[in-house]
Design a binder for these strands. Structure first.
Lengths: 201, 201
DNA sequence: GTCTATAGGCAGATAGAC
DNA sequence: GTCTATCTGCCTATAGAC
């Protein structure tokens, strides 16, 4: 019915993942069916099973691709943004761009549904959060050593506060359809980290 | 099968709401069925429809009861805890007690599933967050006037940061089955509000 | 790779007896 | 209020033709 325009050069498996990703981020893993993807792509559900034999397999592939894309973007930030404050802002903007598409973080959504997920998907969700936490922790430690940042507790706790804070801000902002709620929270979470004591020009 | 022990004095509708509430908080509104409630209570799904004609009606009743109970607890905090810092700690403990039962906030879960919910449930979810925000905003403003609290931005923004921060901390802590992740985030969110400049004995 | 056809199960919901 | 019986529809998944 509401089929998207054909993209001749794109692999069918990629188009399936794109459609499924959007559906999970908006409706949850338990809130969509193979029929939803099929109607959007103009193929049958039987064809979907050729590419992804089970919904669990599709879900696992979804998280894996999402995590890879995300960590690639983190590497790109490291390579292009010199300051830690700038990197943290770029990190928050990754979340903001998801919200702008009227979606929730894929793994935030799956964290809510965690109890109902197959084991392989659970492990992949944890892996996503572990990698977020590791990247942030490293950046925060480095920023504090450099004197660019200042915060009271441990870098890990600060990293977890940021991940949870951004996920929660997205979660609550979405029903209100108000991106400024997220933006305000992101600013507050990151502003307090700036070291205002020392001289960094 | 896994039927809970009979509670002779408790209304059936109450027992239905209790079972459904637990299921939604653990598995989501799209992650449970009438059959789940029926087997837990030892009655049939047809009986459930006598008490709640549709799943949407059950969901709406669920949120309404949850919100009422929550606001009652907020009133009890106001009546029994003198300091604003103490009230905020008690507020965070409401969330912590949910997590201790291996559950997610009912409305946090429904916020994730928001796009799939019937209209009446959506409005009730928004109402829950509005009431949280209003109570916090009032407390924060009062605390700042009294000199007990100190924070840079507006009270509303600070309130929204706290709601989102606690919801997100719960969301991420649950897959890890690690309550300390939530506790650490809660402490960090509230600690920074203390006014360390003036004299409050 | 994609299709038709279909299996087998579970979903929410209703009618009507007790 | 709770039951049995049943409806209709949707779900994931498979077999086998093209």
């Amino acid at each position: 019915m509401a089929r998207t325009r054909q993209q001749p050069g794109v692999e069918t498996s990629t188009r399936i993942l794109d459609a499924a990703e959007k559906l999970v981020q908006r409706r949850g893993f338990n809130g969509f069916s193979y029929a939803d993807i099929a109607s959007e792509l103009g193929i049958t559900t039987a064809s979907l099973h050729y590419h992804f034999p089970s919904k669990a397999a599709l879900g696992q592939a979804l998280i894996k691709r999402y995590t890879t894309r995300f960590t690639d973007e983190l590497s790109a930030i490291d390579a292009s943004v010199p300051t830690i404050v700038g990197r943290l802002e770029a990190y928050a903007n990754l979340y903001a761009s998801v919200l702008e598409q009227e979606r929730f973080c894929l793994c935030g959504m799956l964290a809510a549904e965690y109890d109902t997920l197959p084991e392989t998907m659970r492990d992949a969700v944890i892996d996503f959060f572990d990698k977020n936490e590791a990247w942030l922790t490293h950046g925060l430690e480095f920023g504090r050593e450099q004197g660019e940042l200042a915060f009271a507790g441990s870098a890990v706790d600060e990293a977890r506060l940021i991940v949870g804070g951004l996920e929660g801000a997205m979660l609550v902002a979405r029903p209100y359809r108000d991106i400024t709620r997220f933006q305000a929270a992101a600013v507050q979470l990151l502003m307090g980290l700036r070291n205002t004591a020392t001289t960094t020009s």
